[in-house]
Each structure stands twice: as C-alpha cells, then as structure tokens.
Design a protein around this nucleic acid. Structure first.
Lengths: 336, 336
DNA sequence: CGCGCTTGCTCAATCGATGAAGCAAGATTT
DNA sequence: AAATCTTGCTTCATCGATTGAGCAAGCGCG
C-alpha cells in the first residue's frame, strides 16, 4: 500500500522558528485567542502571514489530544441508497458544521455487528456525541457510549435509554392509508382492505405504522384480516418473494397496498411487472417514504415524506438543551 | 452546547496499574505486536481481559499523533441525493474498511469553496490520501494536498495533476444516444435529432458525453443543430426553466432527449408534467445515470449505469500500485 | 565460574498543540 | 524613588500511545 507521505508537515515549531518567536505564541495566534493571550497585533499578523506562506495545516490529532472536547459528532447510518437517509446525512453534515461540530459518518448497511463496531470506532476518535440513525439495537449503542461518558441520540428508530427523534408514524400511516383507500374508491369504485408490505414486525416504526394502518381501516369501517400484513423486511428481494408467495397461496389479494419504504417499493414494483395479476395502473399504492422521481413517475403512488429538517432541528435542540432523558419526540411527516 | 463528557476515559496507564505492569506492555498487547515485543502470553491475556472488563477504548488521537501513517482515507463527495453517489460512498466505505483504512467522507453540495475547505480539514485530520469525487476543481485539491505531501485521486471527474478514474463517457453516451434514437424510430416511426439536457458545458464528462451524443447522430446520418444542446447545470430547477424557455423560443423541439443525470431528469419530468407539449408517454428519454425505481417506473426511459464497483476497484488498485501519474482510467458503463 | 544469549519486561523520549505560570521591560501611581 | 500594574512575550508540563534502548533474571556452555 503506497500511501507514504513524503515531506514531514510544517508544525507550529517550524513556524515559530521562522517567525523568531515561540511555539506557544504561534498556537495562540492560529487558534484565535491571541488577544486573550496578549500577543501584539504585529506579531499575530506576522505569524498568520508566515503560516499562510508555508501552507500550514493544524494537526488535529495533536490538538484534540490536548483539548477536553473534540467537537466531533458521530452519526451511524444504515444505508445511503435512498433519499431519506441521503437527505438526513447531507443536512446533518451542513447543520453540524454550522454549529461548529465536525461530522463523522459511518454506514453500517443494516449490519448489527458493524453498528457496534462503528460505535466503538467513534469512541476511539473521541466523538463528543453519537447519533444512532435507524439502528437495529440503539440501546446497545447507548450503553457502549455511556460507558465512555459519551451521550447518544436515536434518530428514526427509538431506543429506551436515550432521547429519540422519530416521525409520527401512527398519524402518518393513518393518513396515508386513508388516502390509498380513497384512491381505491375513486379508481375501483369501492374501498377494499389494503395490504401492508415491508418492514420488520418487531421494529417500532413498523408497529406504529401498522397501528395507523389498522386505525384507518377501522375509521372507514373496513374489516382487515391479519394476513394482509406482510412484514418481510425492507429489502426489495424479500418483498418480491413474499408477494409471489402470497399470490400463490390463494388468499385474497388487494390492489391497494401500503408499502413501508421506497426500497421495499422497488421489490413491489418488480413483482407487479414480472408477476402481478394486473398491470401497474390497476394498483393503488402508497409509500411511507418520499422520492421525487417516484412522485413524478408513479401516478398512482401516494407518498409520505418524513420531515428531515424538523427532525434534525429537534435533534440538535436536544443536544443544546443537554437533554439526557429517554424522551421520544415525534415529528409529523409531510403529506403531499 | 451540552456535550460534556462526565468521566475521564480509561487509558493504558489505568490498565497498567490494574494489571500491575507498565503502560508500554499494555500498549504492545493491545495493538497486537506483543510477540515482537516479547510479552508473555499470560501477561497478554491478563491485560486483554482487564481491558475488556474496563471497556477500554484506544485514544486514536494519541495513537495517530505518534504514528507516521494515519490509515485514514478521505473522500470528498458532491451530493448524497442520488443512487450514483450513494453507491460510491457506501461501497467506498466497505472497501476502505476491508483494506484496513478508515474512511472519512465529506459532502460539499457542489460548493467550490466548501470543497477546498473540506480538503483542508482532511489534511488537518492527517489523512493519508484524498479521493476527490466529482469535484469542481480537482487540481486545486491536488495542489493543496500535494503541499502537505498527501496524494489524491480523482473519481468521476478527471483532473490534470492526479490519476483519475472515470466512466467511459463517450462510449456510454454514444450507445445511450443510439438507443434513444432507435426508440424514437420504433415509437414515432422516424429518427429525429435529440435534445441534450443538463450538465455544465465546461466539465469533462459533459463534453465527452456530448461528443458521444454527436457521434451517435453522425453514425445514423442525422443532422444535429447546436441549439439542441442545453447544458444548463445539473439542478432540476435549472433544467425545468431551460426547457420552458426553449419551448417558448419557437425553436424546433424533440421528443427524444438525452438527460445528463437522474437529478436533471427530475427537472425534465417536472417540466413534461407541467408544461410539456405532449404527455410523458410521447417522449423517448435516456438518462446517463441509473436509478432502480426510475428503471421500473419509466417505461420509456433508457438508462446507463456507471460501473461503481469497477471504478472503485480500479481506484484502490492505483493506490496500491503507488501510481502518482496523472493517468485517466476510463471504465465502461453498464447498459441494461 | 564467567561469558554470552534469550526472555520478559520497564524507562523515557517523542509526536504537535495547548495554556497555566512566570518573567522582563516599560508605564503609571503614590 | 519605590511600588504596582500592564504588556508581551517564553517556559514547561501535559494530553495518551508508541517504540528504541536498556536492564535484570535465567539458562546453557566451555
């Protein structure tokens, strides 16, 4: 592996020698508190000039070693393959930087072992705080971090040991379900019980969305058999296979479907294309997730957009408030 | 801001005291070279046990300060809002970890100033190597890093000062254009010159794709007016506005379009919906980019998928070979 | 017995930045 | 003129891990 650095880097000692002063004066000038340290303006300017000429770059490792707070904020994210997590990460980076924090992001591909490993690595890098996004075992992460005196916040999926910021899955799912039902009525002449596809039966979001899904059916006086719920995980292949099996089972099928994420939607659409009983136009789909291209291309697909800016704003608020209590903040999603 | 750590962390000195040994023995055991340092197996096991009991986490800052190579590899990425960059980042993280490198990723939202700032920050964090992905000014980054003795590799967009790994934009665009033309013929009965939408006129990829676009027209003996090319940038709003203006201008319009990215496609589709002269079905679209949901929903949209695994494999190959020469590796994209 | 060799450790310097404490020179007060 | 204050620096210990050098004990050999 050829990553060898040629020259050794310029340090404050090199700059001190060039400026005919001490390393501590250089340090004071370059980290901005030269006024407090009573360095003269002339020396400050001289040092700044020389630092620029030499292309000096601070050694963060040395600086962080000395400081008590690292101002590094870690985020653990399951995937980068959809607009939801993409916008979370992008906005998180921007907001963190605006608050003077350095964002350190790691993608765990929904691998529980990698999640723990990632948290451990972040602790090694002396993060001040860890955001566990859509983690399979957020409490494990909280425990690990707590042992090192590092606080965590759960995002997207809640935990029991740290504050959580999540979407209002119940209300969102209830409204989404209502819309799919209405669409069914408009397009097929009658409401029929919908199917629920995707998600893990045990996860909080899926459970809450199911509750909203059931409630919306009850709201309209529609009977819902339990077997209409197919919580087969989020992966497209899983959804495709599950629908295939369901169709083969002979159980009644519905043209109206509540799909738990755009990723799952991929599998649903693939199944519709390859083996669906009727064409895509004959379905009324709803997706608890948002993708602008789907919104444009899928005429018959209702979407719920989780309010990422509001979620992250709330999250940073919790950090600033110093809130450690395992409260749950539910953010209403945005319906188009 | 309440990010205060409560306890101070366990250090190798704490562990040494608990084990009744020296910090240097602890260090040797925990970083794996205790055999070389002739530490007995018993002591090694004892130290390992105690470290685990205490939930010890290495202080990377201290460790990195002492070592010559950081094994941190930085990546600068423009956006997270599409599958292309999403898969680049996700696979990059995985491959880097597999090679024992720590991936440090920063998103610059196509902001040239932020790009430079990000490179500077990475240097502060002592990265061994920087990957500049889709950078607006890759050579500036290379210069900056070179001054610190850090090498760079350009990904997606080439530079003149460092090795570059990019898609074979010419061949990909030529084939994509051919397919759109064929689709036009099949669906509208005749080939007509296409429009080219999106991208920046100055960027290498756009120029190469335009060359392929023109070549494909020439291959079929089709005359192409220069005004069919609308290199209005990648942003959806830009594309939407540009198409609006073009339509209002009275110049001839084509139903066949070469769209430069899924992001631009968003704007094109929005325009088609809101103000297109005919319905979406009456267009023959092609997109130099891939998105599985578009592939499923857009019947009349041809797509080119850039070969991310091959690109990253080549990139890591260059690192391992220690190649510093500003060569360009062109990776053939995948046509469906 | 004395010499060299191996084993299994410890000591102490070091990486680069930080900041409390200290010090010398000049300015101001009494 | 002496006492005190202010200004503008420098000195040095420190953060935690790493590693070359060194050292003591045990062993084998002539």
């Amino acid at each position: 592996m050829s990553l060898d650095r040629q020259q050794k880097r310029t340090t404050i000692y090199d700059l001190a020698e060039l400026a005919g002063t001490s390393a501590s004066a250089v340090s004071a000038v370059l980290n901005g508190n030269w006024k407090k340290r009573r360095i003269s303006k002339q020396l400050a300017e001289k040092i700044t000039r020389i630092a620029e000429e030499q292309g000096y770059a601070l050694n963060m490792q040395a600086s962080l070693l000395r400081r008590e707070k690292s101002h590094i904020i870690g985020m653990i994210v399951p995937k980068y393959d959809n607009r939801y997590f993409g916008s979370i990460v992008e906005l998180f980076e921007t907001m963190a930087r605006d608050k003077g924090l350095f964002p350190l992001i790691t993608c765990t591909r929904r691998d529980p072992a990698l999640e723990i490993e990632a948290a451990r690595t972040m602790l090694s890098y002396q993060v001040d705080c860890v955001i566990a996004t859509g983690a399979t075992d957020p409490d494990r992460i909280t425990e690990l971090c707590a042992a090192a005196g590092v606080r965590t916040i759960n995002l997207d999926l809640p935990g029991k040991l740290a504050p959580s910021v999540i979407s209002d899955n119940f209300a969102g799912a209830r409204e989404l379900t209502r819309r799919i039902l209405v669409s069914c009525q408009q397009r097929f002449g009658a409401m029929e019980p919908l199917m629920f596809v995707g998600g893990r039966g045990g996860d909080h979001n899926t459970m809450e969305r199911l509750r909203g899904f059931r409630q919306a059916h009850a709201d309209h006086g529609i009977d819902l058999e339990d077997d209409r719920v197919i919580a087969c995980g989020y992966a497209p292949e899983k959804a495709q296979t599950a629908l295939q099996e369901r169709a083969a089972s002979g159980l009644p099928f519905s043209r109206g479907m509540f799909v738990n994420s755009t990723i799952t939607l991929e599998g649903v659409l693939r199944w519709v294309r390859l083996a669906g009983p009727v064409s895509e136009q004959e379905f009324a789909l709803g997706c608890f997730d948002y993708d602008p291209l789907v919104a444009l291309l899928g005429d018959n697909i209702e979407m719920v957009r989780q309010d990422v800016p509001a979620m992250l704003t709330r999250m940073f608020e919790l950090i600033e408030l110093g809130n450690f209590e395992p409260t749950v903040s539910e953010i209403p999603p945005v319906l188009r």
